[in-house]
Amino acid sequence: MRDVAPRPVTVIGGYLGAGKTTLVNHLLRHNGGRRIAVAVNEFGALPIDSDLIEGADGNVLTLAGGCICCSFGSDLVAGLIDLAARADTIDHILIEASGVALPGAIAQSLSLVAGLTLDAIVVMVDAETIRARATDFYMGDTITRQLTDADLVVINKTDLISTEARAALQHWLPAHAPSARVIAANHAVVAPDIVLGIDSAFVHATTKVDHFTRAFATESFEFEHIVDADRLAAGLADPAIGLVRAKGFARDPLLGWVTIQVVGQRHHVTAAPTLADPSGCIVCIAHGRRLDRTAIGTLIAACRPS
């Protein structure tokens, strides 16, 4: 068997018109060198902007930048098995769920396919219609189940609602998406590192601010001591710290070098190759307010095994 690290999978859920397809195209345009495979329910209404399409090979569209798009019809798992088989040509998988799909159920299906790992469930909501949808006679419970599953909720089309309505929505959402961090966007323009995870190359680089991440506060933390990695990951995912994303490398007394990843309240620790640089480093991203450097520094220090 090939020795390939599991490929991260982002599930993008949300109802019709919320902007899932727009987000997918945005991420393809700004993939930051990631070779993204997009898995879509069907080709019926073509989900990829035509200028990104370079060719077609059976049920696979080849896209700019080494990306591809496949339709899985009604058989998601078969599509994922096909994608896992070509993992060496892919860095990241995006699943664009259908409007009625429960993204949490899709995430559970990932464990059926060796070589894939869930990175995050991102649910897009239409700022104008989400509250009405959530009480719709037929679709209400499907919409609220989608929100419940989310690690990250992107409120899209915020330019179409008033400031008051936006504030009300910000107040309403946490009760319906209790596991999620909520961010706002227009035209589904969201920093790729927020949706897809922080690129490893940036963890050790100087703090990175591109034009998409301006709305976010990004800080990196270096530390030379070993840490209890599980404890640190869980601490960074605590809603009280309020991070949208975090990623870093650290030395754990039992596990050795590990990668720590956090998205909203979801966090995981996986084995990492030994690093030349002996110090640990974590990049943290928070939304819309200053990062609490002190709280994070205290947390890192507290995770030093006694």
Binding site: S74, D75, V77, I81, Q108, S111, L112
Partner: peptide
């Protein structure tokens, strides 16, 4: 870790695959 795949005490699937997703592989 899937609701359609019951596991034995050894943590391995028992061989009952429930629902289209679990059956597909």
């Amino acid at each position: 870790n899937h609701p359609g795949v019951p596991l034995g005490d050894d943590g391995l699937p028992l061989g009952e695959m429930k629902g289209p997703d679990a059956m597909t592989p």
